[in-house]
């Protein structure tokens, strides 16, 4: 029983980082209908920016982290403005390939600048400290990640529900031309969502760095984030978070009780099964095409 609880707790802990990546992907998907394969690498470059500030220039972390978030936002704006907006009559597959191309460029830049070696990120919280609940152990970093993920989800939810800008984003997503007719500058909205998603991804990346940091660190979290977003329904923010926690818990339980070798693929099998029943994920309303 104790093991079971520990596994569930571990699952929730790992689910939090999936959740943040999933949220980032959902934000972009909501407006552009593009699964953004460059999401992980956008976070990567921001994280390495933070690393550079902290360890090369010795800037204290209370300045370095906010400037990293600003950098992430600008990066998102920049990529949308210079690359994605320039695509002529884009189709979804074309956009996917563009994001894959961006992914390679960003990854290449980071590895070119910093080499392939592992880095030691000077992060204020040690990933190895933990506190015990009964006989279960939870690390401080995991608790932080969990809180950040939940706060992020609630903030985004409130933002989309109540703020004017959030409404504009939703309108853009539902019908671009109608939104434009209502006086919404849809181009700016797109740019804004890319920036926002980049910031969320960057937070996820920053919370992953204390454990291990190298140019390939974001690939797996990105995939898992994407998978959990799909599980929850690509357009639903709470769905992505819920999907992420489910994924984390299932992976840990499966690894603990069934087979550790297939731990990281079981998620996908379950997703296929879920999708067979609910083709648009658990939370999104299934969109029925009209002829």
């Amino acid at each position: 029983m104790l093991d079971f609880l520990q596994m569930v707790v571990s699952g929730i802990a790992v689910g939090s980082s999936y959740a943040l990546m999933g949220l980032a992907m959902v934000i972009i998907y909501k407006t552009s209908e593009v699964p953004n394969f460059a999401q992980g690498e956008m976070a990567l470059i921001s994280v390495f920016f933070a690393f550079m500030l902290l360890s090369h220039y010795g800037i204290p972390s209370y300045i370095a982290f906010p400037s990293t978030l600003a950098f992430a936002a600008i990066l998102g704006f920049f990529l949308e403005f210079t690359v994605l907006r320039r695509a002529k009559n884009p189709n979804v597959l074309g956009m996917i390939v563009i994001t894959i191309g961006l992914e390679m460029i960003l990854l290449g830049l980071v590895s070119w600048k910093f080499g392939a070696d592992h880095k030691d990120m000077p992060f204020p919280i040690s990933p190895y400290e933990s506190f015990a609940i009964g006989k279960m152990f939870v690390s401080t970093l995991e608790v932080l990640t969990l809180c950040v993920a939940l706060v992020m989800m609630v903030t985004l939810f409130l933002f989309f529900r109540f703020s004017k800008l959030g409404m504009a984003v939703k309108a853009t997503q539902q019908n671009r031309s109608a939104a434009r007719l209502m006086g919404i500058r849809t181009n700016r909205i797109m740019m804004f969502t890319w920036g926002m998603s980049s910031v969320v991804g960057c937070v996820a990346g920053l919370l992953l760095t204390p454990v291990s940091m190298d140019p390939f660190m974001m690939w797996d979290p990105m995939l898992k984030g994407f998978a959990s977003a799909v599980l929850g329904g690509m357009t639903s923010l709470p769905g992505a978070v819920f999907g992420a926690y489910m994924l984390g818990i299932i992976e840990n339980l499966f690894g603990g009780y069934v087979s550790i070798e297939f731990k990281s693929v079981v998620a996908f099998v379950i997703i296929v099964l879920v999708l067979c029943v609910k083709p648009s994920g658990l939370f999104a309303r299934h969109y029925v095409k009209k002829v």
Binding site: Q6, S10, A13, V14, M217, P221, G248, E251, N252, G256
Partner: peptide
């Protein structure tokens, strides 16, 4: 793999 908790468990 990036999550090694089950392994360490």
């Amino acid at each position: 793999d990036t999550d090694l908790k089950p392994h360490v468990m």
